[in-house]
């Protein structure tokens, strides 16, 4: 069976795994963004806090994903919970770092003016600082998404959902019929989906960033 015959033969299954894969990554990115932006807001005013938050989230990233999943399984069991936990943890670094960089990069004259004309702290944060940091935060989410697309494949090891299932099955059955096709189908699927998501991020960026901030 050729590769294309294999793909069309298993099309509906590959499609549902793709959907699960993307949906897991997107949901985990959103969760990581909520946690990461909150952490960023909490620490960006303090250079020490910023350094600690960045160091901690980088440390997470140095743990091999295989090992992290392995360590989470005894605690959270198999399936979705360890997958979600691992993906959210890995997604934190780029989002926390970009949130801190984005917020700290807001021109002091702008926030001073905002306070000076009578905006309260929450107003300055939500109407000024986060709006100005948004392109950086979005770029962090974009990097996180790309990273998580690959890492999510490993989740199959913890019986997680997604295209990793195909890759793992293909690799464990190496040598038998269609094993290579199966592994390649999973891998190519992930690459294609990652490119599509990246394109979507470009569009989101275009529609949610003020024209006043673009082209600078």
């Amino acid at each position: 069976m050729s590769f294309w015959e294999f793909v069309s033969d298993r099309w509906s299954r590959l499609l549902s795994e793709s959907l699960l894969h993307v949906s897991a990554v997107v949901q985990c990115t959103i969760l990581a963004a909520i946690v990461g932006v909150t952490v960023g807001i909490a620490v960006y005013r303090s250079p020490f806090g910023s350094a600690v938050a960045t160091a901690l989230t980088s440390a997470i990233l140095t743990i091999p994903s295989f090992a992290l999943l392995g360590l989470l399984i005894p605690v959270l069991g198999l399936g979705a919970p360890p997958t979600v936990a691992a993906l959210v943890l890995y997604g934190l670094l780029p989002i926390v770092r970009n949130t801190i960089v984005g917020l700290a990069g807001v021109d002091g004259a702008v926030t001073d003016a905002a306070r000076g004309i009578g905006m309260n702290r929450l107003g300055v944060l939500t109407r000024i600082e986060l709006r100005l940091a948004w392109p950086a935060i979005l770029a962090g989410m974009r990097v996180a998404t790309q990273m998580l697309m690959g890492i999510a494949a490993i989740a199959a090891y913890a019986r997680g959902p997604g295209l990793g299932v195909e890759i793992f099955a293909g690799l464990t059955r190496a040598g038998s019929a269609n094993a290579t096709n199966q592994a390649i189908a999973g891998t190519v699927g992930i690459v294609v989906l990652a490119l599509i998501l990246d394109g979507i991020f470009v569009l989101i960026g275009r529609y949610t960033t003020s024209r006043g901030l673009r082209g600078q």
């Binding site: 702008v110 003016a113 905002a114 306070r115 009578g118 709006r131 006043g212």
Partner: peptide, 18 residues
């Protein structure tokens, strides 16, 4: 108090996204 006091500074401090 500040809403009743006009405030203008050196670099203007305009909000770039507005």
């Amino acid at each position: 108090l500040r809403r009743k006091i006009g405030y203008a500074i050196q670099q203007a401090g305009l909000f770039p996204h507005m």
